[in-house]
Amino acid sequence: MQLRHIVSVLTCEILSGAERLGLEVEHCFAADLMSDVLASAPHGALLVTGLASPQMVHTAEVADLAAIVVVAGKRPGDEAISFARQRKLPLLLTGLSMFEACSGLSAHGLRGAVRKE
């Protein structure tokens, strides 16, 4: 599923990474607990989160995730957006809830990430 398709399905605002919307994403990992993401999300996954702190961007960066969708209209601060832009990491914002976002992505064929262990 291309990121541009995800933007369309979730009616996302693009905060960074507009130049990378052609990226294909196969798996999604949804969590607010970044240690869970670090423990279990496979590289290349889409992160769906309700966390809007700079740490969600650092988590995506160190775990080689493809992009981030922040749900429930929680707008990240300037520091987080600036860091995502520096790294060319797509950072997307949707007003949908976590449940609505995940069910929408699932209905359009995005699969959940399998736990590594």
């Binding site: 700079p54 740490q55 961007v57 960066e61 160190v62 520091e79 790294r87």
Partner: peptide, 10 residues
């Protein structure tokens, strides 16, 4: 320093 926590790792 939560604002910058994660920058050393990156």
């Amino acid at each position: 320093d939560f604002e910058h926590g994660g920058e050393a790792a990156t």
